[in-house]
């Protein structure tokens, strides 16, 4: 539950009494009509106008109903312009399918993600290998609009569909020793051509992790869909993490294992280049990547007429929700 703090409400936002009373009378008159409209609206997620010549990803049968029943969560929304569908599905970093931005959209189309199993193990009461369906079905899916800030200094605004990670974790019951949550992407070189590359700087499988309090934070989302449909394979189907206050590489794709651990696990980018990528990887305009500045970002899609350079915000603009997790920590050291 996101609680808006009192100090965020400006005096100008407070409605004067006369307006309030007028509005109240107006609403009373409308109440009957509103009830009728509410009863008729089956789907609260907007019908996105997706280009008809682009592929859609309806997902497996069991998921379709859940996606249709999903509702936007107003507490996790944004007034910013969404990155268009074609950008979201064609500009991806998913090195298992190639290192070019367009490679995943090209190479992942035949990547079958149904059926899909997820191992949940470690410090939990109910470890096991679960069918994805069985994990997801007990939950109501919600749509959240998040900013995604890539460590390469570009960003997009994306409407995900998923469930809070905390709900899934509660379902399996982490015990008191669980201090970290580790996620692992599928390793299958037969189906993931990038894993056959001789020139990759990464060791497979891809691993990422969160501290347990980060994992339990209401912002942390397990996504199964985007833009009203299931996740396209290039976006991390069938199950991915979305941690909007951290650089995009923390939001691991195509998850096959979730482990709860007592010790901080090794994670892929940090292992590959520890000077460049920290375990935390919180979006932080004050701490530059050794090779480029993180003070600004290019909001995509950009055009040649406007590079769309905007200032990067602390925790990607989610400081109110997550800054307390790092109270007292030197974020220059724990980048």
């Amino acid at each position: 539950m996101l609680i808006k703090k009192a100090d965020k409400i400006k005096p100008s936002e407070i409605t004067s009494e006369s307006v309030y009373l007028n509005r109240r009378r107006f609403m009373q008159g409308l109440a009957g009509t509103a009830a009728l409209i509410a009863a008729g609206s089956a789907r609260a997620i907007p019908e996105y106008d997706l280009d008809s010549d682009l592929p859609r990803y309806p997902g497996p049968d069991w998921l379709q109903g859940l996606l249709r029943a999903s509702e936007p969560n107003a507490a996790f929304s944004s007034q910013e312009d969404l990155a268009p569908y074609h950008s979201v599905i064609s500009h991806n970093n998913f090195y298992e399918f190639g290192t070019g931005k367009k490679d995943p959209a090209k190479n992942a189309q035949n990547f079958n993600t149904d059926p899909w199993k997820v191992e949940i193990s470690g410090e939990v009461d109910k470890p096991g290998v679960y069918n994805l369906e069985d994990i997801v079905k007990p939950h109501r899916l919600e749509e959240r609009i998040y900013r995604l800030r890539c460590v390469e200094a570009w960003s997009m605004v994306i409407p995900w569909i998923g469930l809070p990670l905390s709900q899934l974790l509660k379902q399996v019951g982490p015990n008191s020793k669980a201090k970290y949550v580790e996620f692992t992407t599928l390793q299958d070189p037969q189906r993931m051509p990038g894993q056959r590359s001789l020139f990759s700087s990464l060791d497979w499988p891809y691993v990422e992790a969160l501290r347990i309090d980060e994992a339990m934070n209401p912002l942390t989302l397990l996504a199964v869909g985007v833009y009203g449909n299931a996740l396209p394979p290039q976006n991390g189907a069938p199950l991915r993490l979305v941690v909007p206050w951290k650089y995009g590489f923390k939001s691991i794709k195509s998850i096959v294992r979730i482990r709860l651990l007592e010790e901080m696990p090794k994670v892929t980018w940090n292992e590959t280049a520890p000077r460049e990528y920290g375990f935390y990887a919180n979006v932080n305009p004050a701490v530059n990547h050794p090779r480029w500045s993180q003070a600004t970002e290019r909001r995509l899609p950009s055009s040649l007429f406007n590079p769309n350079v905007i200032d990067t915000r602390m925790f990607n603009g989610y400081a109110d929700e997550v800054a307390h997790l790092y109270a007292g920590m030197d974020l220059k050291k724990w980048f």
């Binding site: 950008s87 500009h91 570009w154 290019r298 995509l300 040649l304």
Partner: peptide
């Protein structure tokens, strides 16, 4: 040129 024509160019 995709979502990030600047970088591509």
């Amino acid at each position: 040129l995709g979502a990030d024509p600047a970088k591509t160019i």
